[in-house]
Design a protein around this nucleic acid. Structure first.
Lengths: 281, 281
DNA sequence: GAATTGACTTCCGGAATACGGAATTTAGCA
DNA sequence: TGCTAAATTCCGTATTCCGGAAGTCAATTC
């Protein structure tokens, strides 16, 4: 009995330590391996053992053991025997499967192309990962400027059109979470006040589209509309974006109408009927 | 001296046991987690706990614990609390980084577009994962037929043009490995005899390009050429492919010249100078 | 070319951690 | 409402992993 209580208490403590809600603190070894993978970034795609050990806060021998296992599975790669590590092909294969199975991505492709052609600007499709926007498709118009955003890389949700169009339809607690992570200023126009952000999201819900008024990159405007699936939940959003000179404020209302129209068509293809949300108890 | 030899032999044994290069049998828990991820496929992207436990040959409770941890990290996702599991966004993010950091992919894009436009056929860029080809980019010509191949999915190395162009320049032991895995017949033209395959690879090395003579898909012909980097190693290959009616045998020599030319240009951009291979001791 | 340095790799005993069978809960179905 | 199949949780055990330390290797310096 005494023993059981001790264990239970230990588990509780561990739970509160992670402070991340519905996660699990179990499988510490696996968590460490994930920490190792998270060390890699677009900026630093190649890391040495000691770099990784430092970043993941693991002893050298532990990091080494994890990397050896990951390498054996093709999840990380290493040129020679004593070279830098990088993420491996297996990870790419697994990652591609995520997209291939994402219905919205498949269904969106023709709409994205159509929008890109008719607007002459860059079109984005993004989903929400709980705190950031992940761009899952982008198409640059041949005439437009190539956009800076990379597919697969996270971008802030609170200062991009795609992000705000998604964030506006998330739960209150999710919005709280994003605010708590901090609203970092990227341009003079970035909304950094949680109160103002909430007002903005309110407006987005009312209008049915979001505008990025040079809030993320200077001199870039975007217009985005939310996409719903058969459960009526907003699961993605779509934007057009371009240099502020080419997308003046006057052009926004028309673009917004068009984006809402296309997002509506796409939502319909995903089974959205406009009825009340399906409750998941 | 003696000691060093013993160690070297041990390493060799491990290598041959796992049959995948320098694997490691350490970290069983991590290996189990990887087995779980490998259960998912394009055909079956959504699996229940018991499906996964069966496929990965794990007890239910173990599989459940692993999935809970992976879910906590966003590597797998689950709609409701008791729904099917699927691969998660985090995996997509990690996977995209692999491509973004792959120099050959970046540098190849303009060449791929050029080839696709001028040939009017589908163009592929692939790399070798040790036993299969992984397509890392593909571009369908607007006039051509949309190809069946999916980016990120592995395809056989021994019966595709991209695959053979890569395989021809791999080590003898790698070629052995591929033969040992089996040369499955896909069409009447598939080369299923290891001896004949070796002859074919020989020919490819001599000519500098590979032809898929309807060996993988019936009535599809491809021509591929290898791409080298600054170490002179073949690291990727590029192909044009189309229906046999539109790519008759007579057209192959010209296509081959063109593919070799483009592959050469791309290799040059990757630092290939045509000098002798850099030896890695 | 010997010695120093810094980084990577392996070893090993202890104990924390993960295992997995069994019990419990949940949901769907008859 | 009771039944079945699946998911989830429990908990004692012992397997597996941990991580400090010793060993190896390669590059650089003197």
């Amino acid at each position: 009995m005494a023993r059981t209580n001790v264990k239970a208490r230990q588990r509780e403590n561990e739970g509160s330590r992670s402070s991340r809600g519905s996660g699990a603190d179990v499988l510490k070894s696996l968590r460490k391996a994930i920490r190792v993978l998270e060390c890699f970034s677009l900026q630093e795609p190649r890391l040495s053992l000691s770099d990784i050990a430092r970043r993941a806060q693991l002893p050298l021998s532990t990091a080494h053991r994890i990397l050896a296992t990951l390498r054996g599975a093709g999840i990380v790669e290493q040129e020679g025997d004593r070279e830098l590590y990088r993420l491996g092909l297996k990870l790419f294969e697994l990652g591609s499967m995520v997209l291939a199975n994402m219905e919205v991505h498949r269904e969106a492709l023709p709409f994205i192309e159509e929008l890109s052609r008719e607007s002459g600007e860059t079109v984005h499709l993004g989903v929400f990962d709980g705190s950031q926007v992940v761009s899952i498709e982008k198409m640059d118009s041949p005439h437009g400027l190539a956009s800076q955003v990379t597919i697969g890389k996270g971008a802030p949700a609170y200062c991009t059109a795609v992000g705000k169009a998604l964030l506006a339809f998330q739960s209150e607690s999710t919005i709280d979470h994003v605010c708590r992570l901090g609203l970092t200023r990227h341009t003079p126009q970035t909304i950094t006040d949680p109160g103002k952000l909430r007002k903005e999201l309110e407006r987005i819900r009312a209008l049915g589209y979001a505008v990025d008024e040079r809030e993320h990159q200077p001199d870039v405007r975007c217009v985005a509309a939310p996409i719903r699936d058969h459960t009526s939940n907003v699961i993605a959003s779509m934007s057009v974006s371009g240099p502020a000179t080419r997308i003046p404020k006057e052009r926004i209302p028309l673009l917004a109408v068009r984006m809402k129209e296309v997002a509506g068509k796409l939502s319909a293809r995903l089974g959205y009927t406009g009825r009340h949300p399906v409750n998941s108890p």
